[in-house]
Simulated scan of single mutants.
Amino acid sequence: MTVTNERRVLVHSDKLALAGSVAARFITKTVDILDDLGEAHVVLTGGSVGIAVLEAINASSARDSVDWSKVSFWWGDERWLPRNDSERNELQARAALLDHIAVPAENVHPFAASDDGITLEDAALAYAAELVEAAPSGAAFPRFDITFLGVGADGHIASLFPHLSGIRETELSVVAVTNSPKPPPERLSLTRPALNSSDRVWLVLAGADKASALGLALAGASRDEVPVAGIKGRRRTVFFVDGAAAAEVPSNLIAPSY
């Protein structure tokens, strides 16, 4: 039986084991979702661990057990850079997985790019409209089944940073970010309400530099101080971490096995 709003921490020996484990779990869960619902909506993240997970999915012998024609892909955030810039999350995800599976082009929903001929603000509005178009009647977003997120050393998720207005947004589904403390300063990001609408939020992080943020988030820090503290999936929230990132996690939250 699924426990509503359950938060668990699953610890792995290293980044390679972490990526492989998340990939295997993703394939199994996506097959189950497709059996139950007939389609799936997945939100992708960037970052070295997020991309390593996509590479591990692509390398898995079980990869094609998923009917990719029924899976739609979205992004939690994107850097406001030209379409073919190697720093774009979209480009990295395509190289790691999307270009290797039989997913229809119309099922892949990247953010606009800086050379698409529109402003950053219009790009945010356009993505919000795309979310509505794929959503059930009257809803602002599709039914997200799995949302992947990385976590920064400062606790940021997507492009929602500590003490900036994005993490406090409660009405919009997408925001234009103009003052990111990480380059580039201009970005697009889903908001906390959009991220938290997901049935399952899977946060994937590795490294000792993430330990403090993770420990603070799980100990009850405010979302303004540590944005990841404000993230919780509708059904389940799972932190997939390596041992270094888990150093400050309360022991009662660490799952012994799964």
Rank of each mutant, 00 (worst) to 15 (best):
A135D: 07
R200H: 12
W75G: 03
S114A: 15
V226R: 11
A211M: 11
L81D: 07
L91W: 00
R236A: 10
L253P: 07
A217Q: 06
P183E: 11
L195Y: 02
G243C: 05
E121S: 11
P184W: 08
A62Y: 08
S257A: 14
V66P: 13
A139S: 12
W80A: 00
V201Q: 08
E55T: 09
A244K: 03
R25D: 08
A217K: 06
Y127N: 13
E186A: 12
R94I: 02
F141E: 11
A153G: 06
V108I: 15
L98P: 02
I254D: 01
L205P: 00
S114F: 04
A211P: 10
A176E: 06
S212C: 06
L131P: 04
S257Q: 13
H163E: 12
G50F: 13
P184V: 03
L218D: 07
V22R: 05
R79T: 03
T147C: 08
D116T: 00
T119M: 09
N58T: 06
F141I: 15
S114N: 04
L54G: 00
V71E: 05
V249M: 14
M1G: 12
A126P: 08
S21N: 09
E106F: 09
K70G: 01
V249S: 13
E90M: 03
K182P: 01
V31A: 05
S159E: 10
L125I: 00
S165H: 11
L172V: 02
S198A: 15
R200P: 00
S165A: 14
K210N: 01
S257K: 10
V49H: 02
W202V: 03
G20M: 10
R235M: 12
S48Q: 12
H12V: 01
S69P: 01
F111C: 05
D116K: 05
A194M: 10
A176F: 11
M1P: 05
N5V: 08
E39C: 06
E87D: 07
P136H: 13
V132M: 14
S137A: 15
L10R: 12
I101M: 03
L16G: 00
D35C: 08
S48A: 09
D199G: 08
A244T: 00
D77S: 07
E130K: 13
F111M: 07
I231M: 14
H156Y: 06
E55A: 09
W75R: 03
L195V: 15
D99S: 13
K232G: 13
R200T: 09
A95C: 04
E248F: 15
S137C: 05
L131N: 03
V3E: 15
V71A: 03
E6Y: 04
R234F: 08
A140P: 01
E130L: 10
E169V: 01
I51Y: 04
A217S: 10
A24F: 04
P82C: 04
L81T: 09
L188V: 00
E225H: 05
